[in-house]
């Protein structure tokens, strides 16, 4: 093959790479499958483009399904809220009637009904809150993590059974302040809610991991069993916890916020030895 023909083929290869750089994976090079180096590169690019195109389509389909599911759950939750409120009002009426001629057994049933109805309403509110998380409104800005942690910790300082320590050298990070407040509030209130000691001790720390920071919230609580570790970030997983009045959405929301900002969260814990929730925050504006 002459030089001009090879140059033309290489121009096509460059064109194809340019398309791929623009995330257009629909192009294919017209190539023979031979051991000629340009053919090998062209064939490789074709296969790569094919795989990436397939994955892009798969991802967008999954995103569409996800959006539809979220819309569906929001609608269902919204529609269920009204009859549950009506049931709640009716229970109150029955309770008032029962107060006229008190019947212990009926009051017992009323209390059970109230409990069940409240739990259902909590779940519905949880689904609504989870579905309402709107990441389009997120505003990334510089935040002094130390200052923000101190501000949040101050709100918990009224409780004499809670002691929150914050590392001296917390970094300045790039995040949405509302979202970060929500994350920290959830982790701190969980640590307090589930604690079984006279004094609930919480430590907030950070570690520089190169491209990102690791923020950790550790406590001296009862710890989390191995089986629970994988489940606690799921919606409603913790709802029936015997120790607390949990709605079971806090950690699901925390995980969702962190995932949306390209971070990860995990928990390290041994039963009876407390837990450490560790989440990552990108250093640069990579959200």
């Amino acid at each position: 093959m002459n030089n001009q023909a090879n140059k033309d083929r290489l121009d096509k290869v460059v064109e194809m790479i340019s398309s791929m750089a623009k995330l257009d994976f629909s192009e294919r090079l017209n190539t023979e499958i031979t051991n000629d180096p340009i053919d090998i590169i062209s064939y490789g690019l074709n296969m790569l483009s094919e795989e990436l195109e397939h994955n892009v389509v798969k991802k967008s389909k999954l995103e569409e399904i996800n959006t539809n599911l979220e819309k569906f759950s929001y609608t269902v939750a919204h529609d269920l809220k009204s009859p549950l409120n009506t049931i709640s009002a009716l229970i109150s009426l029955i309770e008032m009637e029962n107060e006229q001629t008190p019947n212990k057994k009926i009051q017992e049933y009323i209390n059970l009904l109230k409990e069940t109805n409240d739990r259902s309403r909590n779940m519905i509110n949880g689904i609504l809150e989870y579905s309402r998380l709107n990441f389009r409104d997120i505003t990334m800005q510089q935040i002094d993590l130390g200052k923000l942690c101190s501000k949040i910790a101050e709100e918990y300082s009224i409780n004499k059974h809670v002691s929150i320590s914050i590392d001296d050298h917390m970094p300045v990070i790039y995040y949405d302040e509302t979202a970060l407040t929500q994350i920290l509030n959830n982790l701190l209130s969980n640590a307090i809610k589930h604690n079984d000691k006279d004094i609930c001790k919480i430590q907030v720390s950070s570690r520089d991991k190169g491209k990102h920071y690791e923020i950790s919230v550790s406590d001296n609580g009862p710890g989390i069993s191995e089986a629970q570790k994988n489940k606690i970030f799921n919606l409603f997983e913790n709802q029936n916890s015997s120790r607390s009045n949990s709605t079971g959405i806090g950690l699901a929301i925390v995980k969702r916020i962190i995932s949306e900002t390209n971070g990860t969260i995990h928990v390290e814990s041994e039963q009876e030895n407390g837990s450490i929730f560790i989440f990552t925050v990108q250093k640069k504006e990579e959200y």
Binding site: I40, G44, M47
Partner: peptide, 15 residues
């Protein structure tokens, strides 16, 4: 053996 078959192999086991 050849660069071509290595490329094909990598696509089979890589992606």
């Amino acid at each position: 053996s050849s660069p071509l078959s290595r490329l094909i192999g990598n696509f089979f086991i890589g992606l």
